[in-house]
Computed example of a mutant assay.
Amino acid sequence: MEKVAFRQMKEGTREEYVFLERLDDEFNQGLVDRILVALRNLEQSLSGYQVTRLEHSLQAAARAEADGADDDMIVAALLHDLGDELAPYNHSQLPAAIIRPYVRGEVTWVVHHHGLFQQFYYAHHFGGDPNERDRYRDHPWFQSCVDFCERYDQAAFDPDYPTPPLEHFEPVLRRVLSRTPFDPAVIGEEHSLEA
């Protein structure tokens, strides 16, 4: 079989879906390679800073690594701005969706909310509320997101910070994204991303 015969999903046979599942599995083996390409594309996005968006991402991951963060948080720091190109108005949610099957819920929540929490540093310049993040103050992962933003994200715009190349982080990216998706032993207790 080279292609399925159905034109509507409800018409598909078991044989067709087994065939498609095999193709999906083969395609999914290239996830890390596609993410590496997307990270390299950040080299060309969002001008005006002293570092490129890729350098910012690498520096955030380097800061997490130097801080003794675990693999989940290092990958989160590396990928946290991956949505800048394709989802500029909700850039945090795109990388959160990508990592959600592979990391503990806390890390997904932090990445999902980091855009809002980052406003603490600049919203007042535009008449916004820098403390908007406080609506999540009672959430168990509030402080984790505050710490992520303070230690890794907002600090990662320094052109003099010793920052390794993308290849340095490829092994940790492959380790984390090769996990069994949605393994309860990894992702832990599910919490709503909004709560």
Rank of each mutant, 00 (worst) to 15 (best):
R135H: 08
L173D: 02
R63M: 12
V111P: 14
A69I: 13
F19E: 07
F182G: 10
N41P: 03
E15C: 07
Q29N: 05
Y152M: 08
G115I: 05
F148V: 08
P184N: 03
P101R: 01
Y121I: 03
L58N: 08
D147I: 14
H113A: 06
Q154S: 05
I187E: 07
L177Q: 13
E2L: 07
R137C: 03
I99E: 02
T163V: 08
D70I: 09
S45W: 05
Q29H: 06
L46N: 15
L193A: 13
S47T: 10
S144H: 12
F19L: 09
G48T: 15
G128L: 04
R175G: 09
H124K: 05
F126V: 06
L36E: 09
L86S: 13
V176E: 01
D33P: 02
L86N: 12
V75S: 08
V18N: 11
V75A: 04
V186Y: 01
S144I: 10
R34Q: 05
E26Y: 04
L31F: 07
G188E: 01
S178W: 01
F6E: 10
R100C: 10
D138F: 10
D183N: 03
E190Y: 15
F142A: 01
I99W: 01
N41D: 04
L82F: 02
A123S: 06
V110F: 03
V32E: 12
N90R: 13
H56Y: 00
F148H: 08
D25A: 14
A69V: 13
D134F: 01
R14W: 13
Y136S: 07
S92R: 00
V111I: 09
I98A: 08
R40G: 06
P164R: 06
F19S: 09
D160M: 10
P184Y: 10
K3C: 08
T52N: 12
T163H: 09
D84K: 03
A38V: 00
F117G: 05
T52G: 15
Y121L: 05
V146R: 12
R7F: 03
H139D: 10
Y89W: 10
L31K: 04
H191R: 03
R174L: 08
M1T: 11
E26D: 12
E2A: 09
L23R: 00
L173F: 00
F19G: 06
C145H: 15
A38H: 02
L94M: 12
V107F: 03
F126T: 09
S47A: 09
R40P: 06
A66D: 14
L177M: 15
